[in-house]
Amino acid sequence: MSITGTLIVQMIVFLILVGFTMKYVWPPITAALDERAKKVADGLAAADKAKSELSAANQRVEAELAKSRTETAARLADAERRAQAIIEEAKARATEEGNKIVAAARAEAEQQTVKAREALREQVAALAVRGAEQILRKEVNAGVHSELLSRLKTEL
């Protein structure tokens, strides 16, 4: 158990090993480690960015959906209103048409009544004349009694 020349040789070997490690081992490994750390940091940042972008896109989609939803509702309400209007209009027109038809029918009926009454009056006058002829057994001169006859007619 003694200190020998081994010590000197060991020191030289040690310094050579340290030199080797310092030149060929340490720099590449630390460089790779630093680079990887940077890559990981970049990746994390990118992931964060993607996440915020995704949430922004989601918001946009949500807004778009809301907009189209209100638009649809408005359009539906509009259509309903228009349909209502059309129905109202048709109803009004139908009522008007009906009234017109009723009025025409009523006018015609009036006319027919008047005509029938006229014809009836004619016939009654003729019947009266014939009756009178029968009673008088003599011909009544229509021309002579026309005034009488027309008076009778109006009286009927």
């Binding site: 020998t4 020349g5 081994t6 060991q10 081992v25």
Partner: peptide, 26 residues
């Protein structure tokens, strides 16, 4: 303390393992 003496076994193994160290790390 006798610097004229060299232990070949210690030197041999430490140098060989030193080379192994360098080789592995390299």
């Amino acid at each position: 303390v006798d610097f004229s003496v060299f232990s070949f076994d210690s030197l041999f193994f430490s140098i060989v393992l030193g080379i192994v160290t360098c080789f592995l790390l390299w």
